[in-house]
Structures are given as structure tokens and as C-alpha cells.
């Protein structure tokens, strides 16, 4: 069988509690290295919310979904098999980092290394892209539990 992509999984939504254990399992095993920080191949979304990447359901923005061609076949709207190779290194409709989120970490080491001062040190958030302090405005699960 020519398995090209897995496009669906079946979940028992009544049993899913949105805990994200599956998200972390996937992250730990497959995308835990530098460059892949923003990647959550498996994520869980709650509604209301814009999702991850943001507004991913917007088929205009991402040129997503399916079309029926003149032969009556179901085809991906964004590309054909052949044109997919041309878009390997640049796809104008692909979500960008801004559509995902700017990954961050914290200056944890400050808690160990801060010299004696007049107040308590705290580990500030910094961007994993620039290394500079970051004002966190988006994340892969930003809208979690906004409505139960």
C-alpha cells in the first residue's frame, strides 16, 4: 500500500478530557530538538479558540481543503502530487512561525547564578528564536479551558 499520509485518527470525544498527555508523548518522542520547538504534531484543541496554527480552519488563508476536478475526482486544493515537489522549500500558503507561536523558555539559570542582590531573582521568559526577553502573546494551546 502506498501510504502517503495519515489524515485522520478516531477519538472517543466523550472520553477525551483534553489533558494533552498525547501531545506531550508525541513532543517528547519526535519533536524535542532545537528547531522543532514550535512543533506540536499532536495537539488537542478546545473551543472557543482560534486553534493551532491560528485559524487553521480558514481554507482561504491556507488554501486548504479539497476540490472535485473536471474528471469528478477529489483532489487537494493546494497542490497536486507533482506540484508538491516544487513547493518543497517554499509554500506560500504554509502556516508560518507567527501562525504557530514564537517558542520561548526561561532564564532558569539566573536562579542559581544571580549574585546577591536586594531582591529575589526570577527567571524571565526569553525567546527561543532570538534569545531576547519575550512578551508571550501566543502558544500552542492558548485557548485552553476558556469554556469548560
Amino acid at each position: 500500500m502506498d501510504v502517503r499520509a495519515q489524515i485522520a485518527m478516531v477519538f472517543h470525544l466523550d472520553k477525551c478530557i483534553g489533558c494533552h498527555t498525547c501531545s506531550v508523548a508525541c513532543k517528547n518522542v519526535w519533536t524535542d530538538r532545537s528547531g522543532a520547538e514550535y512543533m506540536w504534531w499532536n495537539n488537542v484543541e478546545t473551543k472557543p479558540g482560534t486553534g493551532y496554527p491560528s485559524v487553521w480552519e480558514n481554507q482561504e488563508k491556507y488554501n486548504g481543503g479539497w476540490v472535485i476536478n473536471s474528471e469528478g475526482e477529489l483532489k487537494l486544493r493546494c497542490q497536486t502530487k507533482a506540484s508538491s515537489y516544487l513547493k518543497l522549500f517554499y509554500n506560500p500558503f504554509q502556516a508560518t512561525l507567527d501562525d504557530y507561536y514564537e517558542p520561548w523558555t526561561y532564564k532558569y539559570e539566573d536562579l542559581f547564578k544571580a549574585p546577591l542582590g536586594d531582591d529575589q531573582p526570577t527567571a524571565r521568559p526569553i525567546s527561543l528564536i532570538t534569545g531576547e526577553p519575550i512578551d508571550i502573546k501566543a502558544g500552542p494551546n492558548w485557548d485552553d479551558d476558556l469554556s469548560g
Binding site: 501531545s23 517558542p103 523558555t105 526561561y106 521568559p125 502558544g139 500552542p140 494551546n141 485552553d144
Partner: peptide, 22 residues
């Protein structure tokens, strides 16, 4: 809460990323 057991895990990058970083 959802992203910590008391204070444990709450300071891990995983949990902070899946909540709101704070």
C-alpha cells in the same frame, strides 16, 4: 489546576508552553 501538581511540573517548559507561559 491542569498544568501542575501543586508546584511540581508547573515550572517545566512543557507545561508552561501548553498553558500561557505564566
Amino acid at each position: 489546576g491542569k498544568w501542575h501538581i501543586h508546584s511540581t511540573y508547573g515550572d517545566t517548559l512543557r507545561m508552561k508552553t501548553l498553558s500561557r507561559g505564566v
